[in-house]
Amino acid sequence: MSETDGKCRTGVTEDDVRAIAALARLRPREAAFERLTVELNLILEHVRALERLDLSGLDPQEAALHSRPRSRDLGTRPDAVGPDAVQALAPNWRDGFIVVPRLPALEATRSPARDPG
C-alpha cells in the first residue's frame, strides 16, 4: 500500500485488498479479489468527495465526542451466564474449555500487548 499525503488519492491494488482481507481474517476465493478491488476503488472514489470539505479548525477527538453523551454512566451490569450456556454455544468444548486447533505455545505469551498470532 502506498502512503497517502493526508489525502486519499491513490488507488487500491489487488495486493492491497489481499493484505486487508488477511488482516480481517477473510479468505475470499481467488477470483473474487479482482471484483473486490474494483468495488473498493469505486466506493473509495465516492467517499473521496470528503476531500473537498474544509475541516480546518476542528479537533478530531472533539468531533468524535460530538454526538455522544458525556455522562459517566456506571450502572448495573448483565447477569452472568453459567458454564452450561458457554458449553451450549461452543462449537468445540472439552473438560470445561473451549477448544481450538493448537497454537504455537511460545506465541501465547501472557502479555496482553502481544502480536496477533
Partner: peptide, 17 residues
C-alpha cells in the same frame, strides 16, 4: 484477555475466559 492452555488437550489449545 483470557487464558490459553496448550498442554492440556493433545493437538489443541484450550481457552479459559
Amino acid at each position: 484477555a483470557g487464558k490459553l492452555i496448550h498442554d492440556r488437550i493433545a493437538g489443541s489449545t484450550a481457552v479459559d475466559l
